[in-house]
């Protein structure tokens, strides 16, 4: 506060505030996230779910595919099967743990791949505009015109069954909507003067995309992607149900949900368990993404 106050052009009223720490953007995002306990809790929950799926062979009390005619449709809290058993007498807990492997993979991987591929195309289309934009976005529109279920079935059908093909078809389904979100955000940034200012200071197009465009596009895209996770789990099980994904004895939450449906009047609680697993997972993803959005907003 020595020279500044005497200088008429720099006169700060808040001159005696303590020095603020200069943080990078991501460091400041983490700093805000640190105090959002709900988001942190949900993040921990997601990690827990993923870990329990990964370590299913160690955690599961039974073989998930082994059926037992004597113990069909046992209720929750049964002394042998804590979460009951299904219509073939298989342990629900073990199936949920093992099923998480397929379901989480099918929920997260296609969305993640779709985010990366759709995001890149969207950023390119939005930033370059003009002909590039037209070519990319019209192509996306062709895919976007079909209902996603139909599109997934059609692609899987033509690629054939199997888990890789299921992954590929789901990824293709999610690219267009994510691309659209990224394109909208990127085309808004493109018209901002700070992008021109960066160009004027000699930054390459790649640096501008990396430093200015990505940072703006990432938040709406992540938020949208997180809402797709549950859709992806259900879509994947739909494909499996039609014989276009994993084959029946392999557990999968969506598949479990649809086969247990028939027993809903006998053991309603047991039948609801795979649905609850999907619900908890997708809510956790939504809350985390919402928390991220808030943390990524510098105004909060």
């Amino acid at each position: 506060m020595t020279d500044a106050t005497s200088d008429p052009i720099s006169f700060d009223q808040d001159a005696d505030l303590p020095q603020a720490v200069v943080r990078g953007y991501w460091a400041s995002v983490w700093n805000r996230l640190k105090y959002d306990y709900v988001t942190l809790f949900c993040l921990a929950l997601i990690i827990l779910i993923v870990l329990s799926a990964v370590f299913a062979p160690w955690l599961a009390p039974y073989d998930p595919e082994k059926s037992s005619m004597a113990y069909r449709l046992k209720p929750v809290g049964h002394d042998k099967y804590i979460l009951g058993s299904d219509e073939q007498g298989r342990d629900i807990l073990s199936r949920i743990l093992y099923g998480g492997r397929v379901s989480l993979a099918m929920g997260i991987l296609p969305v993640a791949l779709g985010t990366i591929i759709g995001g890149i195309f969207g950023i390119i289309a939005g930033y370059y505009g003009g002909k590039v934009n037209m070519i990319i976005m019209r192509t996306m529109d062709v895919f976007f015109a079909f209902p996603s279920v139909l599109l997934a079935v059609a692609i899987s059908g033509s690629l054939g069954g199997g888990i890789q093909n299921q992954l590929a078809s789901l990824t293709i389904v999610f690219i267009p909507p994510l691309c659209r979100v990224a394109e909208t955000a990127a085309s808004q940034v493109r018209n901002m003067d700070f992008v021109d200012a960066a160009r004027a200071s000699g930054a390459s197009t790649f640096s501008i995309l990396k430093d200015h465009v990505l940072i703006t596009v990432i938040s709406p895209v992540l938020v949208y992607a997180s809402t797709l996770v549950s859709a992806s789990i259900l879509l994947a099980s739909g494909l499996s149900f039609l014989g276009l994904g994993v084959s029946p004895p392999t557990p999968d939450w969506g598949l479990m949900l649809s086969t247990l449906r028939q027993s809903i009047w006998v053991q309603p609680l047991v039948c609801a368990i795979p649905g609850i697993a999907i619900l908890i997972t997708s809510i956790a993803f939504n809350i985390v993404s919402d928390g991220l959005r808030v943390a990524m907003d510098v105004k909060s």
């Binding site: 008429p8 052009i9 006169f11 700060d12 009223q13 808040d14």
Partner: peptide, 9 residues
């Protein structure tokens, strides 16, 4: 003859 500073909080 600019007025220095900013309006109060």
């Amino acid at each position: 003859g600019a007025i220095p500073g900013t309006p109060p909080d």
